[in-house]
């Protein structure tokens, strides 16, 4: 059964003058990682809010069309139930610290306390995410005194620890260095391998190419394309929506423009390496070894 289905969904915020979402129809299948891309203010976060029921349960406004989550109409869901079954990592790392816990370890455990998880299991689960995210040095620190990047990791860990089957993650690496970003993506991949369904908003297109199964492209409140990452990331729709291609894809296009196209268009570095090295072998004299 599909996890989420949207049919002709539109939404205008109570204080907004134009719709933030416009005629969106979309199906989210379980067990996949969906990447959402688009310019700032193209409706990515609003889409996430609808899928998680924050709209219309929390943000008010005019919602049209039909939203079904796990086959049930969004309006019939109990908001508290939704917040338990769908995890949500928000964009702003500065507002996600609860402010009521004085160590990072307890901060990460807060969600588990609210779910009524046993103490032993709680300690195990928090310890596991602490290890996975490399937060060992932080567990005794006061979460209210962390840097932006540290807060972002703690906020992410706090939601991951709750182990929902379906998780929405909105720009989890905006404050992180390349190494930490890869670590976060590595964890997202592991979550997917464990059968979780994930919606991920992210600007780092090269990482998207590496990890996402399907990509949703948004522009001015509409979904302009949805499909397998391989198709979407090489499509015209992507650049028309103002989203850059992965670097290696751009390289392939540039090669094609220069009259030396590759056999197919890569989206990841590994693919590009294979394609280009195949080319080098075809024309061994053209390249001098370095």
């Amino acid at each position: 059964m599909e996890l989420v289905s949207l049919r002709n969904v539109g939404f205008t915020y109570a204080y907004g003058d134009k719709p933030a979402l416009n005629d969106v129809s979309l199906t989210i299948e379980p067990g996949l990682l969906y990447g959402v891309v688009g310019l700032n203010a193209s409706g990515k976060s609003t889409l996430c809010s609808v899928v998680r029921g924050i709209i219309p349960h929390f943000h008010h406004g005019e919602l049209t069309g039909e939203v079904k989550i796990k086959g049930r109409d969004l309006l019939e869901w109990d908001p508290a139930e939704l917040s338990k079954s769908i995890g949500y990592v928000f964009q702003n790392p500065f507002t996600q610290i609860s402010g009521v816990k004085d160590t990072v370890f307890e901060e990460i455990a807060l969600g588990l306390e609210n779910l009524g998880v046993d103490r032993e299991e709680m300690i195990d689960r928090v310890t596991t995410v602490v290890r996975e995210l490399g937060l060992e040095a932080l567990i005794r620190k006061n979460p209210n005194e962390l840097s932006g990047g540290q807060r972002q990791k703690v906020a992410f860990a706090s939601i991951i620890a709750m182990d929902a089957d379906f998780i929405i993650i909105d720009e989890p690496t905006s404050q992180l260095d390349p190494d930490a970003s890869e670590a976060v993506f590595g964890i997202i991949r592991k979550l997917k391998e464990r059968g979780k369904s994930i919606i991920l908003v992210e600007h780092k297109i090269d990482l998207m190419a590496e990890y996402a199964d399907r990509i949703i492209v948004m522009k001015a409140g509409r979904v302009v394309m949805e499909g397998p990452a391989r198709e979407v990331l090489v499509s015209d729709e992507l650049s028309q929506a103002g989203v850059p291609y992965p670097e290696v894809t751009e390289l392939a296009f540039a090669l094609a423009n220069a009259g030396k196209p590759l056999r197919s268009v890569p989206i990841t570095r590994a693919e590009a390496r294979e394609l280009v090295s195949a080319r080098i072998k075809e024309a061994p004299h053209a390249h001098s070894a370095l």
């Binding site: 260095d177 390349p178 190494d179 890869e182 090269d206 992965p246 670097e247 290696v248 751009e250 390289l251 570095r269 590009a272 390496r273 280009v276 090295s277 080098i280 390249h287 070894a289 370095l290």
Partner: peptide, 19 residues
Amino acid sequence: AKLKRPEVPQLARELGLST
């Protein structure tokens, strides 16, 4: 410094095209 090269330069290096 735990830095990463951008994708294309990294590719060029892996393929031995240029450092």
